[in-house]
């Protein structure tokens, strides 16, 4: 078994109102100096050894992310 992380982020050109709301809240909470926040998703998968990178890419591209609005990165975490 291996641990695989898939990070999904809104594409840079796509408006991210959730990230903006977080960014706007920070100064109100007394945290200054944060100029931008983008909010995405982080998936942790426990993966059998025979699942190859191509299969993981397909999972990310066809299901975990919507490539119309999101970018994705698959990372294998060494045990």
């Amino acid at each position: 078994m291996a641990r695989v992380v898939v990070d999904v982020m809104p594409k840079p050109e796509i408006l991210d109102p959730q990230g903006q709301a977080v960014a706007n809240a920070l100064p109100r909470l007394g945290f200054d100096g944060i100029t931008s926040v983008r909010q995405g998703k982080h998936f942790e998968l426990e993966v059998a050894d025979d699942v190859d990178d191509a299969a993981l890419a397909k999972i990310a591209e066809t299901f975990l992310a919507n490539p119309v609005i999101e970018d994705w990165v698959v990372t294998r975490i060494d045990a």
Binding site: P10, I14, L15, P17, Q18, A21, N66, V68, I69
Partner: peptide, 11 residues
């Protein structure tokens, strides 16, 4: 159909 629907711009 092409495209995608996203969170409303003012949340």
């Amino acid at each position: 159909l092409p495209g995608a629907l996203t969170r409303n711009d003012r949340l």
